[in-house]
């Protein structure tokens, strides 16, 4: 029996997932800055406080390190907290608890405990919020064994992956691009999960594999529609999870298309594109490559305030089209 499918925004999908999780399990609760009556800086928690009360939708002081630590401690002792960072940039204030505590606790204690905490990070540029409110720091956390790091790109995945994250026994970090919050898409009612650690082929194609994350998935799809009219058939892999990465889906795609481009918003160097490229270079797909791998990532600068500069700092649809065209035509 198919659940009723509606159009929801990405933010609504997350909110619905949190409500379902809280209805299903009294151990689930929300913590974060201004997530109660204010509804969250991006209105993701919205009116949940009216439904679940201030004991389960907890406004924290502006104490990212302490707040994250409280969430870790609650998770360690039987609760299932979902902790919202107001902006992903503020993870910098809480790295100690995320990297030293949440990620390592189970390992350091020889498997005697687990830390089922979910942390949500509104991320990315495009809102004019400048350098300290626009970063994409997912690769930082992706570098840490013990964490799982996901980047849902659609409302459907946002709901299903959040529910998978709540059910997961280990710490799951969710990076949500702020410009996706208003994106609408089909979302079934009720409970379902989308597995962590599985990439998704958003579009099948023959000529080129684009591995994209988060908001770049939609940009790549838009670029692919244009490229199709030029006779270039693009396959798009939505990575969805950056740790643990679904290597096989990417390898299989590259073996099919013989060309790879990685598109992501974070600063280009030492990031997800480097990891995916190196992974392919180490795999059996390397022998299938007909052209050098291309990375399209963010500029090597902080995110600027001016809107034109801001746009120029991260890959845009025309950039993807040009790079893909050059790659397929052997210009590079």
């Amino acid at each position: 029996m198919d659940a009723m499918v509606r159009e929801l925004s990405y933010a609504q999908a997350i909110q619905e997932a949190m409500a379902i999780a809280m209805d299903m399990d009294e151990r689930v609760f929300l913590m974060g800055e201004d997530i109660g009556v204010y509804g969250g800086a991006f209105q993701v928690t919205g009116d949940l406080v009216e439904r679940f009360g201030t004991e389960r939708v907890i406004d924290t002081p502006i104490s990212e390190l302490g707040g994250a630590g409280v969430a870790v401690g609650a998770a360690l002792t039987g609760m299932r907290p979902i902790f919202e960072f107001q902006f992903s940039d503020f993870a910098t204030l809480a790295m100690e608890q995320i990297v030293n505590q949440a990620a390592k606790m189970r390992f350091m204690l020889g498997g005697e405990v687990s830390v089922p905490v979910v942390m949500r990070f509104p991320a990315g540029s495009g809102t004019g919020a400048a350098a300290q409110h626009s970063q994409s720091l997912e690769a930082w956390l992706g570098h840490v064994p013990g964490l799982k790091v996901i980047q849902p790109a659609t409302p459907y995945d946002a709901k299903g992956m959040l529910l998978a994250a709540v059910a997961d026994p280990d710490p799951v970090m969710i990076f949500e691009h702020k410009l996706l919050y208003k994106m609408k898409g089909p979302v079934p009612e009720g409970y379902y999960t989308v597995p962590i650690g599985k990439a998704d082929i958003r579009r099948e194609g023959r000529d080129l594999t684009i591995v994209a994350t988060s908001i770049m998935v939609q940009k790549a799809l838009d670029a692919a529609a244009v490229l199709e009219s030029e006779g270039i058939d693009v396959e798009i892999v939505d990575l969805r999870t950056i740790r643990p990465m679904d290597k096989q889906t990417v390898i299989d795609s590259v073996k099919k298309t013989s060309r790879l481009m990685c598109v992501y918003e974070a600063v280009k160097t030492l990031g997800i594109g480097a990891e995916v490229s190196a992974m392919i270079a180490e795999s059996e797909a390397f022998d299938y490559l007909d052209a050098p791998i291309v990375r399209l990532g963010g500029a090597e600068t902080p995110i600027p305030y001016n809107p034109e500069l801001e746009k120029a700092t991260v890959p845009q649809i025309p950039d993807i089209i040009t790079a893909a065209r050059d790659l397929v035509k052997g210009v590079r």
Partner: peptide, 20 residues
């Protein structure tokens, strides 16, 4: 719940355990 290699690292964790 464990000793800790980070000075002060266990303090918020204790508060979380108390919240539980």
């Amino acid at each position: 719940l464990g000793a800790n290699g980070i000075v002060g690292g266990g303090i918020p964790i204790a508060v979380g355990a108390a919240l539980s």
